[in-house]
């Protein structure tokens, strides 16, 4: 059926003159939405103390069981967080994480939040276990983010009223 073959070539020919929709990652990085759930960050208070108190609620909420928290007690000489208790070990196994964000929801102190970074590939599985220092540090790679005024939803009433 020569007609069918020609029809096929016709489709090809039509697309030659169109704009490509392929994005040339990694040369071009498409901005993610502001609330895109990427790799976690641990946050600090303005005075430098860690917000995390090591309560393990994130580990309890985690459906893939990828968070490990070992707590210890703050002392006057060695104060890490604001309360009596801090996370001595805080590890997230990102090879297991499904980026559901339940840890962020469970956290009573907004200590853990999900950032926008998604470029997490490593050559070894062990390197995907993020320790507390890695999670506290600012990520080195940066991902472009869409305009938050345009795409982020306003702060919900239950958060702003109290």
């Amino acid at each position: 059926m020569p007609f069918g073959t020609l029809k096929g070539f016709g489709v090809t020919l039509k697309h030659i003159f169109r704009q490509p929709i392929t994005q040339q990652y990694p040369e071009y990085k498409r901005p993610v939405y502001p609330r895109f759930r990427g790799r976690h960050r641990l946050n600090r208070h303005e005075n430098g103390l860690e917000k995390c108190v090591g309560c393990s609620l994130c580990a309890a909420a985690c459906p893939s069981d990828c968070i490990r928290v070992v707590a210890a007690e703050n002392t006057a000489e060695h104060r890490v967080s604001a309360g009596e208790r801090y996370a001595r070990i805080y590890e997230i196994n990102l090879s297991r994480c499904i980026f559901c964000g339940y840890c962020e929801l469970a956290c009573p102190f907004d200590a853990i939040t999900l950032g926008n970074e998604f470029e997490l590939s490593e050559y070894s599985r062990d390197d995907l276990i993020y320790t507390k220092d890695m999670l506290l540090a600012e990520p080195i790679k940066r991902v472009p983010v869409q305009d938050s005024d345009l795409y982020d939803t306003p702060i919900p009433a239950y958060k702003s009223s109290s």
């Binding site: 393990s56 309890a60 007690e73």
Partner: peptide
């Protein structure tokens, strides 16, 4: 047992 573990762990 102070700060050693939580009930779900």
């Amino acid at each position: 047992y102070r700060f050693e573990a939580r009930p779900w762990e």
